[in-house]
Design a protein around this nucleic acid. Structure first.
Lengths: 263, 263
DNA sequence: AAAATTCTTTGATATAGGTCAAAGGATCCA
DNA sequence: TGGATCCTTTGACCTATATCAAAGAATTTT
């Protein structure tokens, strides 16, 4: 995800291990350890499944799909059939109005699930665009439902994934409705870096996969404002910014901006 | 919901009929007809359940709870146990920051489900406040899950409810990120009136259950801006506004403001 | 490797909506 | 019933961010 950058990857890297599961037929103990940092486990391997259950699960996520940078995994209006677990790569999801305005509704990375928007109407209502070459597990939703009727643990995990998305969006609403440009960008960067860290990447360095305009669309601000805010953070010594490369020098300052009271 | 106002209620009113189900033991055919406009049917009575299944479902929603105006149905930090189907009354859900800023994340009316935010962490992450005296069905989530493992139709409905909430929040993000004050308020009013109409109320008249400040919080604007925008709509003859009473005179004008291209 | 394209930064200026203030209506409560 | 409180409206002014513009980097294409 961050190739080409001087990042200290102390990893067990996420879903690469997942590949080992089906392709090298490792035992469960190994899988658990290997995927312990992979959000994919939430759908693919909730804790408490036995070998037989694990195998049925593997069958559901058997299909794979590659999506090249700039291509859509699915588009608004597409018929909904499957959820997608990101194995590698980075996506944005966005909705648009008739008159062409676009709102980025989220950025998704390895281990995260996309496609939930399609369940309600059997049609997708947003676009999922690969911001870099990507590789996803295709999980036919009918199979997911069938299996989660059999395995309460899986059922609970599916529910949690959907609830998590609702709670995340609540947080974005707070950002968009109540926060100023600096707070929004601080929150965004802290969230990104925290998710990357959970995947074994650096806590302080990252390479943005999205443009200033895409960040702005997500955060409800114009690309110039995003750029100026980056420059301000840089001037204040909070971070080093060089185009899409960002090194956070003062994480506490960033947290203070996001959350003035507690920090 | 809109008592005390000169609204033409041509109703089959919503979830009142649901009460008949358990209390008068009507047959399914009657239920279906009676609740055909009630969103509650999505959880309580998905199409395709037989009498036996219906009875099991009734058992799940057996408990009731009254919430007085101004009281919380649940609060951020509360342990999550149940979803709630609103029978009567009107709620707002909101999240808040450490430093006391509040973001209204939604307004919910009869037939809608609240509490989904609690599933992911077993704790609620928002407050649900009754904006008028309310009456809810308490649905222990464990029972909902158990039953939806038994009844695929119910399972699908639970998934749709969660997906619908995700899609709704996508729309709010678009409002907050891309739209101007007038567009936001137009969208808000059109959405409210559409939901009220689906419940048998007027398409053109409504009494707001929430203050200008609460509308503003939801739409990411200050109460003064909400008030001014109402006044502007009123001056332009699009609607008649008298405090919380609103009569839409030019619905097409409102749609044009919300969606400049298509209308 | 040069040309074309796209992205980012920065400056100058404009504006939608925020802030502060005050008055008039509703609504609540004793 | 009357006073207190809360809500809404409106005016005057201000500011954070948008808009417009242009130059410099980076990336892609030929």
């Amino acid at each position: 995800m961050l190739e080409g950058t001087p990042i200290n990857i102390n990893v067990k890297t996420v879903c690469l291990e997942h590949e080992d599961v089906s392709e090298q037929n490792m035992n469960i103990q190994t899988i658990k350890v290997a995927c312990s940092n992979c959000n994919l486990r939430e759908l693919c391997m909730p804790i408490g499944l036995d070998t037989d259950e694990m195998q049925k699960l593997d069958a559901v996520v058997a299909k794979r799909r590659r999506v090249k940078q700039g291509e859509n995994l699915f588009s608004s209006g597409d018929h909904f059939t499957s959820l997608y677990a990101i194995r590698t790569g980075f996506f944005k999801t966005c909705v648009s109005t008739e008159d062409g305005r676009e709102q980025v509704t989220g950025f998704q990375m390895a281990g995260e699930i996309i496609g939930l928007d399609g369940i309600v109407s059997d049609f997708h209502s947003c676009n999922a665009v690969a911001l870099e070459d990507a590789d996803v597990c295709v999980m036919p939703f009918a199979s997911v439902e069938e299996l989660s009727r059999e395995f309460p643990v899986l059922q609970r995990h599916v529910h949690k994934i959907m609830s998590r998305e609702i709670v995340r969006e609540n947080g974005v609403m707070m950002l968009l409705g109540n926060m100023r440009a600096e707070e929004r960008l601080a929150a965004f960067l802290l969230n990104l870096v925290q998710r990357l860290h959970a995947r074994g990447f650096s806590q302080s360095e990252l390479v943005l996969r999205m443009s200033r305009e895409e960040i702005g669309s997500y955060l409800g601000m114009k690309l110039e404002t995003v750029s100026r805010t980056f420059s301000k953070f840089s001037d204040e010594g909070i971070m080093e910014v060089k185009q899409r490369y960002v090194r956070i020098l003062e994480p506490d300052a960033l947290k203070r901006i996001f959350n003035p009271q507690t920090c």
